[in-house]
Design a binder for these strands. Structure first.
Length: 563
RNA sequence: GGGCGAUUAGCUCAGUGGAUAGAGUGCUGGCCUCCGAAGCCAGAGGUCGGGGGUUCGAAUCCCCCAUCGCCCGCCA
């Protein structure tokens, strides 16, 4: 509907441009049409007249009148009336029957209503979570996962070819630290003194992993001929494998899966050179070298990031000859682009915001547009219980895990709560609220709309009444018109959510629709004495249900028939 | 010292230059003989952190200031 009006206005503007012969009217003027908050300003309205007033050197109201005059007869037939109001808004009053007739489109599109091809099949590589396999996931990861998974669904719905990927940071210091921690606990289990590393992992789960190793290997790792380094490496390998499996399981509990699990060790460091830097990574260094983006200083190899937009230079190869995390990250992102993605989207914790510029500067140095990389930064989650923050420390292994939360509140509630806020807002996740209030929970509020409609349908079936689109003109209540307009906005809401990489837009949209439905339901009877009206309202209800179902699907929230 | 983000109702937050700034929650008071009360209705609650500027119009854009969070390593 909106598209139709936009089109009508755009054509009229084009007409004005031709007639007035004025080149100052911008070629590709973006015509904005919206639903005014206040009903008295029409069903739809546009502000183009005010925008065009300056280039046309006329008053906005004058321009509005000219635009209206230039609407084609066809388009004109859509409207009951058109008014010019306020500073120069053009307000359109559409024939109710025109609006409600569109419900048939929703019904017929069914599952695909809202979807579009706006993304044109463009390849997008969406990387998220990518937590180090060194322990259980926490609520920060959970938010990242919920947002990433929802974004994947949303981007696919608007026609992007999305691949989701989890980068497994399974090489380097953290993993070494993990191995040492496990090995010390292993030693401890034989009554030896554990000399846990300073930055080691102290959680109980380390002990149980050590226990598993003991049950498999016995005391073999401590025997005469064994080299401690090898033992630590074994422990690291075993632990990261076990923890990765655990993480996969945890994500599954939240309903999140990935297309690719990209192992840093296996994919980036395969074919290691003698000096510890793999051929793949070396080729990136070579590329940067060729472009003059590197220099040596203090025995290290530096990247001239300041030349490419960052505020400082960064070390790629340390003076001990090993590569930095940053170097691997450049190689990884080069690899992503090498695999054909035109658009990279990363979801990172906000504490990594400082790395956005440096990574973009590196891509630029490699000859890519830095706009190919978009980073969604996610602010922290504060876990609350009854309004009091739950304090935790990951190092000490003392934290509430994502898995515990999912178990406590359920994955629907968890996902929904994690998606309720804009990503750049801090999020308070109150466990007691999520549970205690499950009766008035926003998730249930929306699911309830669906369950109610299903329930009405059951009753209708029993009475032999089936939905029908044959008399949509019977939907004349202001609320019916209002709701229909909003349903027709769903594709726009979805597109906007995709453009802004903001899943929470869908959440707000659904709450709004659900609320309207509950009001409607309380005020009016869907099944009544008038058979034809009942059929029509059933059809209407089914359209609402379709949108709610499609919307929740984008969030990865289930939609039970009964509750 | 520099950077990023935040600041909107008692609380938690929406609001990508438009008309009288919204929702949830909390508070007060109502609504089941009626398709599901996990619902609905009414009421109260605001100098959009402060100050300048840009323009027909600013919560929204620009500058300055304040407060809070997070970053600023040859760690990852």
């Amino acid at each position: 509907m909106i598209a139709e009006i936009k089109n009508a206005v755009a054509q009229a503007v084009e007409c004005v441009r031709r007639k007035s012969n004025i080149s100052s009217v911008p070629e590709n003027l973006f015509v904005e049409v919206q639903i005014p908050k206040n009903r008295e300003f029409g069903d739809y309205s546009t502000n183009v007249a005010m925008i065009l007033a300056r280039p046309l050197q006329k008053s906005p109201r004058e321009v509005a009148a000219i635009i209206i005059d230039n609407l084609s007869q066809n388009h004109r037939a859509l409207f009951k009336s058109i008014e010019i109001k306020g500073p120069g808004f053009i307000n359109f009053f559409v024939h109710e029957a025109v609006i409600t007739s569109k419900l048939a489109d929703i019904y017929n599109s069914a599952e695909s209503f809202g979807r579009s091809t706006a993304g044109r099949g463009e390849k997008v590589l969406l990387e998220f979570v990518s937590a180090n396999p060194t322990g259980a996931l926490h609520m920060g990861h959970a938010r990242n996962a919920a947002v990433g998974d929802a974004l994947a669904r949303i981007l696919r719905a608007v026609g992007y070819d999305v691949t989701t990927e989890y980068y497994i940071n399974d090489a380097g210091r953290q993993v070494d630290m993990l191995g040492r921690s496990v090995f010390e606990r292993y030693k401890e289990s034989f009554g030896l003194d554990a000399r846990m590393p300073q930055d080691g992992y102290y959680g109980e789960y380390i002990k149980s992993i050590a226990g598993e190793i003991r049950s498999i290997k016995g005391d073999e790792l401590l025997s005469e001929g064994s080299d401690e380094k090898d033992s630590i490496r074994y422990c690291a390998g075993f632990a990261k494998q076990a923890l990765l499996e655990q993480i996969k399981g945890e994500l599954e509990e939240l309903g999140v899966g990935f297309d690719n699990w990209y192992s840093e060790e296996a994919e980036l460091h395969s074919g290691d050179g003698a000096d510890g830097i793999s051929l793949k990574v070396k080729s990136v260094i070579g590329e940067l070298e060729d472009r003059g983006a590197l220099y040596k200083k203090d025995g290290a190899l530096w990247f001239r990031a300041t030349e490419y937009g960052d505020s400082q230079d960064w070390v790629l190869v340390k003076s001990d000859g090993t590569g930095t995390y940053f170097l691997n990250d450049i190689a990884y992102h080069g690899d992503k682009l090498g695999r054909g993605a035109l658009r990279l989207i990363n979801i990172w914790g906000a504490d990594h915001h400082g790395h956005v510029k440096r990574l973009k500067s590196a891509l630029k140095a490699l000859g890519f547009e830095d706009s190919m990389l978009e980073v969604v930064l996610i602010q922290f989650v504060r876990l609350m219980r009854d309004g009091v923050e739950v304090k935790m420390s990951k190092r000490a292994g003392n934290y509430v895990t994502m898995s515990e939360v999912v178990e406590e509140v359920g994955s629907d509630v968890a996902r929904f709560f994690l998606l309720m806020r804009g990503t750049d807002s801090h999020l308070d996740f109150d466990l007691e609220l999520a549970k205690r209030e499950s009766a008035e929970n926003p998730v249930f509020y929306i699911q309830y709309a669906n369950a109610r409609i299903r329930s009405v349908f059951k009753k209708a079936e029993a009475a032999g009444i089936s939905p029908s689109p044959d008399h949509l003109e019977l939907l004349t209540l202001p609320l019916e018109i209002e709701i229909t307009k909003k349903l027709l906005m769903f594709p726009d809401a979805l597109r906007e959510s995709a453009e802004l990489l903001s899943p929470h837009k869908i959440v707000f949209y659904l709450q709004d629709i659900a609320s309207d439905f509950h009001v409607y339901y309380n005020k009016n009877r869907i099944i009544g004495d008038d058979h034809t009206l009942s059929q029509t309202r059933l059809f209407f209800a089914e359209c609402i249900r379709a949108v709610v179902r499609n919307g929740l699907g984008l969030l990865g929230v289930s939609i039970p028939e009964r509750m």
